[in-house]
Design a protein around this nucleic acid. Structure first.
Lengths: 348, 348
DNA sequence: AATGAATGTTTAAACGATTAAACAGATGTG
DNA sequence: CACATCTGTTTAATCGTTTAAACATTCATT
């Protein structure tokens, strides 16, 4: 391990301002501003305009966006709040949103809430003080009031992934009920009789919908539907709670023969636990999970998963938000996209 | 799929300004500013100060950071440029940097370069115009001149992961030579005789170092070291190039019996290709890769990998940058941390 | 020639904070 | 009592832009 640290003095290069161009050309800063923003085109002499543009280019003028933001009351920045940027689900969305925003001249400030309401509040505050023009938010449990406040304060935002059914808040998400229903039906069609669910203990609507879809499918397939087939874990002790759930459901006297996981994280911990118990997938237990990873098909048994249309979610959310910003209208778009079940070996 | 879109008018709530507090209390904005920033404490009457603080709290005053930034010439924002935020390597670093920055009151704007020099330039420009106080950058191939320019312009930055050996640019990275050497030695110790390397065709120093370490270890172990054992892939056609490399190295008349992958992406594509060829790991070919994933040990064969100390990298880079910003000194810290070889089944 | 319109440019006030400098009144000092 | 010092507060400039309004010419029209 090599470490080397020294200090040196800085040589801050002078930034070119509007004033500098004005001076160089011999006009007022106003004129320079008009020209560079292509305003009052019919009033400004071509010669002067050309000269200004030429000098601006020569000096490599780059407008100070902070000053511009202050004056214009627009920062062309959006705040992205996800659960955890380190989770592939979030980071993939982040990438799509980044690209979509960039296309329209926006930049993205991000923050991770860790599913924690206080952190969410903190992040919203910080970003509001930085005058972001709007938000894209993956809401956390119990955050309805917080989001409501954004709404009543006229702050533009679009929710992703999670949403509130009784509210008019704009969101882009999937049809969680349908996705879970499909997944469970698939397991039933493969002859599975006793299907368990591992999900979070939460009041987040999208997860409740997944549970509802799971239960509806069991009913529809005339399969056992019992509260004990559902294992709910806490966010703070996810790994150990999942492990415990796996033991409870798979080491019972009549164990489940299939499992649906409510998220990629749950599945990851679940698979580890299952392997540690030397229980074979799919022979002893079939597995389906929500969310995709690049590497799902590299797993010791390739994993059947519910593929969310992340690109579509990110794009629609960003487009809607930016459109809302430009049109100065608060937008109420509520989209539930279809998710696709990708069948691999774990549920054969 | 449900879609529902309507529009409504916005009701922008009045933002509380310094002026409002001043008016309410009946003093000048200057005084309010002094009080809220805890300046001139010995000059300001306790009563007035208390009143100001009380009113500020009541009105829930939140200073406009844009205005503050303009005046102070500091945005308390850092620009993070990674190769691709959707890659777990980048997003894990991003998360660490986010947390570290937040601790010190900084926020992070991020961008993905896609290993592309033009995109890098574009991002740097955008972020500079937004007046970020400094950068944390994973440099791309051929970007030395670009970084050099940052340096000569006195823009504070710290490089991560990738760096330039002949320059004094501050960086935090790992000892790539040593890590590769260790990995290859490990393979040799397991009795592997013909060890291939799959890496990028690049002039990025950290990857050259990995190659150098690989070759040095072969020499040290008295193993065959041949240019044909190294397969270099292009960034634009990574997947197909890897596939081709796997075929070349494993379907040869005397195939390699071990492979080192230069990154997580390479390993991912490589493993897929290997499995498609029905070649067994580790029986026919042992595998080691750079970079970690949450799920490496869930792979169809758990993967031996070189674990980079991401937390340490992110922390040191952020701390150094922020320290540099505060001390107004351009900092020259060059750190190469040790990486750890995590041995799993793929190289047994 | 007088008036109005068109053309080209500048002035100056914002945006919302910070802060050096000025100011006014109280208090202390020789 | 004159002067300096201390205390508490305000004034006004500033950060780097934008932009309405004012200004000055020139040109066209009657």
């Amino acid at each position: 391990m090599k470490i080397c640290t020294t200090f040196a003095s800085v040589k801050p290069k002078k930034k070119i301002l509007l004033k500098d161009i004005a001076q160089e050309v011999g006009v007022s800063t106003a004129l320079v501003s008009y020209v560079l923003n292509n305003q009052k085109e019919n009033r400004i002499s071509k010669e002067v305009a050309d000269k200004i543009r030429k000098v601006a280019k020569e000096l490599n003028y780059q407008p100070n966006q902070i000053a511009k933001s202050l004056k214009m009351q627009k920062t062309h920045t959006i705040g992205l709040i996800v659960a955890d940027i380190a989770n592939p689900f979030s980071s993939q969305l982040a990438r799509i949103i980044e690209d979509e925003a960039k296309k329209k001249g926006y930049t993205v400030i991000f923050g991770s809430s860790d599913e924690n309401i206080e952190k969410l509040q903190g992040l919203i505050n910080v970003l509001l003080n930085r005058q972001v023009d709007g938000f894209i938010i993956a809401a956390v449990d119990q955050s309805e009031a917080e989001i409501e406040q954004l709404d009543t304060n006229g702050v533009p935002f679009v929710l992703i992934d999670r949403y509130f059914p009784d509210k008019h808040f704009p969101y882009v998400a999937i049809d969680n009920y349908g996705a879970a229903f499909t997944a469970v039906s698939h397991l039933a069609n493969r002859g599975r009789k006793k299907i368990g669910l591992i999900t979070y203990e939460t009041s987040l609507f999208h997860l409740l919908e997944r549970k509802r879809g799971y239960q509806a499918a069991l009913l529809h397939e005339n399969l056992e539907s019992d509260i004990h087939l559902v294992h709910e874990v806490t966010i703070d002790y996810t790994q150990q709670d999942v492990k415990q759930g796996i033991r409870r459901l798979l080491l019972a006297e009549s164990p489940v023969d299939a499992l649906l996981f409510g998220s990629n994280t749950l599945a990851m911990y679940g698979l580890k636990a299952i392997r540690d118990l030397n229980i074979s997938i799919p022979e002893q237990v079939a597995v389906v999970t929500f969310d995709e990873t690049d590497t799902h098909n590299l797993f010791y048994v390739s994993l059947t998963y519910i593929k969310q249309p992340l690109a579509e979610i990110g794009k629609q959310a960003t487009e809607a938000l930016l459109k809302g910003l430009q049109e100065q209208k608060s937008l109420t778009l509520q989209v539930n996209l279809n998710a696709e079940l990708v069948v691999q070996k774990s549920s054969m």
